[in-house]
Simulated scan of single mutants.
Amino acid sequence: MDMNLNGRRALVTGSTAGIGYAIARALAQMGATVAINGRTPDRVRTAIARLKEETGTTCFIAAPGDIATAGGAEKVVKGLPAIDILVNNTGIFEPKPFFDIPDEDWLRFYETNVMSGVRLSRAYTPGMVEAGWGRVVFISSESGLNIPVEMVHYGMTKTAQLAVSRGLAETVAGSGVTVNSVLPGPTLSEGVADFMAKMAKDTGEVDLDAMGRDFVAEHRSTSLIGRLATVEEVANMVAYICSPAASATSGAALRVDGGVIRHIA
């Protein structure tokens, strides 16, 4: 199986922590030079220092910029004009009842979760097509299929990512460029761990694994693994579809949801 990414350049957005960080680490371990993106140069520098220590490689470059804005995306593209792999990972979430979500929240979520990937894909994919090889990945969510009642605006953006991903895959059909979505389920990212740690202080429960299993049992009871996924488990799927081995996979929505979604297609 060809998982070699030597000589390839990748951009992983939102990669200073969580799933994006794990994806960046996995791609670097496969030989890619990986651009680390975050909103501030300080966060990017800190993440790169950690990645270099953890991987024993120096194949990381800084690509700071708030890609939730058109200006921030333009800044990133100007500093990194050509890549082979784009992982659209940047995203935000916030539980809020539907009737309490104002217009500005709907627009903020759409700009961050959807338009960030649209802008970067529009900027980078033509160069991949010209080169005859490329990978574009959208990090969606099982919430794009199972719209969560506690954050409908988030679910809406994750469904939109699936539509954009499939449409772009159709657009570049036969070019050597593949476009796919990955749908994580409940995942123990740093943000979720921090949230659960705060809950632990309130409840006295300190076992994050047990808390994760309790959350899944209560809120995602259809899970077949009965626990939160790790960021590494999500990154493994992304690393595979970014590799030469996945050359026949395009236009797909690949689930890493622990079986939460109860259908076979």
Rank of each mutant, 00 (worst) to 15 (best):
C242G: 04
Y240T: 11
I23L: 03
S140G: 03
P148M: 01
V12M: 10
G65K: 01
A70G: 10
K78A: 02
G91A: 07
A131K: 06
P102E: 04
A68W: 00
D2P: 04
N89H: 04
A73C: 00
I61M: 10
V182C: 09
V137K: 03
V172F: 00
R255T: 09
A252D: 10
G56A: 06
G7K: 02
R119A: 02
G251D: 10
I48A: 02
N180I: 05
E130Y: 10
E150A: 03
R119D: 00
A22H: 03
E190P: 15
S141M: 06
L162G: 04
E142Y: 03
D257V: 07
G191E: 13
G79N: 03
E170N: 12
I67R: 05
W106M: 05
L11N: 02
A229L: 13
L5E: 06
G65P: 03
R25P: 11
G7F: 06
N89F: 10
C242P: 07
F98E: 12
I241C: 12
V114S: 06
S189Q: 14
I225W: 11
S243A: 11
S15D: 07
Y21H: 05
G18T: 00
A32V: 01
E74C: 05
V129C: 01
S223V: 13
D66L: 01
G65T: 00
V231A: 12
E150R: 07
T13M: 09
A200N: 11
G65I: 00
Y240M: 11
G191W: 13
V152G: 05
K201E: 15
M115K: 06
A197R: 14
E142Q: 09
M151S: 08
I85E: 02
N37R: 08
A22I: 13
Y240Q: 13
A131G: 05
A73K: 02
V238G: 10
E74T: 08
V256T: 07
R220H: 15
I61V: 13
T55K: 04
D100A: 00
M115G: 10
N236G: 14
E150D: 11
G20T: 00
A248L: 14
T230P: 14
I147W: 01
T230I: 11
S181W: 01
E111G: 08
S143T: 04
D209A: 14
E111N: 02
V192F: 15
G259I: 10
G72T: 07
Q29D: 06
V137S: 08
D84H: 12
T230M: 06
G127K: 12
V260P: 10
A169Y: 06
T69H: 05
P186D: 11
G7I: 05
A245T: 12
N37A: 09
D202Y: 15
E104V: 09
T33C: 03
I147G: 07
V177N: 00
A229E: 12
D194N: 15
W106D: 01
G91F: 06
G204T: 10
E54N: 09
I147V: 10
S175E: 00
R255P: 11
H263P: 12
F60Y: 10
S141A: 04
V172P: 01
G259S: 13
L145I: 07
S121V: 12
A62C: 11
V172N: 01
A68G: 02
V206F: 13
G79Q: 01
N180S: 01
F60W: 09
M151K: 02
S250W: 00
L254A: 08
